[in-house]
Design a protein around this nucleic acid. Structure first.
Lengths: 222, 222
DNA sequence: TTCGTCATGTAATGGGTTACATGATTAC
DNA sequence: GTAATCATGTAACCCATTACATGACGAA
């Protein structure tokens, strides 16, 4: 009878912990700010919100009604239903944050976890980062093994695809190594530290500065 | 009444075009050799095969029966049901290869297309690569815009996640640029060309040479 | 003879999107 | 007053996984 997606539930709870919001805005945050890692549609989000309310993690509040307009000082936006995290919800989220089980190192789950590292204790952060890393190293070994086994009977394109895939994974491992090192040495995120990777903007990516696009909506629904 | 996954259908047809196979083996190829990009389970594969047979793209052949053992000279493996591409199936696959619609630039779809570039005409290859690239550039612009809009109100971890995500996309764009250049100048895949990226094994990935793992199965089912 | 892998299948379930239906509010 | 965007929802479908059921073969 419910939509227990895990990752969506987690992300919603996490976003609402920062501040109450209504569904529409929530979805935008999911897809942009926090996003990149996953786009959810309303058909997923709204039922999930209802389920969370039913569980007692959230309560619905009527958004500023037409009458008491301008009551909303900062958001400047009228809203229908604002969702607010309950005490139980907060507690529940805290528990979720503390867990660092094997599910937490899968691609999307990991991204969601990482996005809320700001509210996660250092030791849990370490466990998650290291878990993710060894997950990726497993994957790498499998890829290497399979590549070694089949190398000769594959055409160049298949090979190239595989090579690129492996490099992507290796790159993420390096990234995790840096992050883990950062955590270990205590400096809290490489804020202004020297970019030792020349990463910035090195190569031939056409800037193609067409910012004059109509861009009517921020919405990723399409 | 059927399982028209598109990408699975495409991949199955493509693999069977090279040589007839039975389901079990097909799945392994999907997950390893050709794989990396997607793992399908039997619950997906078998019904799909049935559907393809019903469509007339495939025919089932009895695999070498217990009696006439050793009939299978090369594969050295007994098989139950071997699937073979029909003439219509071949034709159908050819058509699919020729299409280069917008669906073809989405992540998984693109990987599947790329895996069969060996059987794709050069101009279609170009269209797919360029389509993919502009798809990614769109995505980049969106990310940049959203980042610019929200930069200050995000914590360091969220920011770092976003930065890493963008770099990943930028990296794929560079990769595509190289591939497109290769196609354009005619040299057919950077076969033995000098690795201009020092890619090989540069950075701190612990080799962790534990090849003595039990590793009972190649199976990615888990 | 038992265990591991090869091999084929199906029903229940999960998790999500699409398309649709509806309406309020703002900007022009 | 009309178009665009904000805002909420639902039903129908899609794609795929999980867990289960079944069985043959080879090696220890």
């Amino acid at each position: 009878m419910s939509r227990r997606s895990g990752i969506l539930e987690f992300a919603v709870l996490g976003l609402l912990r920062e501040s109450p919001m209504h569904g529409y805005e929530l979805r935008k945050r999911l897809n942009t700010s926090l996003g990149v890692f996953r786009a959810f549609s309303y058909g997923t989000l709204y039922p999930c919100l209802k389920a969370l309310v039913a569980s007692g993690w959230l309560i619905e509040e009527p958004g500023s009604a037409p009458e008491d307009a301008r009551a909303a000082s900062l958001a400047g936006r009228r809203a229908k239903i604002v969702y607010r995290l309950t005490a139980e919800g907060k507690e529940h989220f805290e528990e979720l944050l503390a867990h660092s089980g094997p599910d937490a190192w899968e691609d999307e789950h990991f991204a969601a976890r990482f996005a809320f590292f700001g509210q996660t204790s250092r030791d849990v952060r370490m466990r998650v980062l290291e878990g993710r890393r060894s997950r990726l190293e497993e994957r790498l070994e499998k890829m290497r093994a399979s590549l070694a086994r089949t190398r000769e009977r594959l055409d160049d394109y298949t090979l190239e695809l595989q090579r690129h895939g492996m490099e992507s994974v290796e790159r993420e491992v390096r990234w995790l190594n840096e992050l883990i090192e950062s955590e270990r040495t205590g400096r809290d995120m490489r804020k202004g530290s020297a970019p030792q990777d020349t990463s910035g903007d090195a190569d031939g990516i056409p800037r193609d500065g067409d910012s004059s696009r109509p861009g009517p909506s921020d919405d990723t629904t399409k």
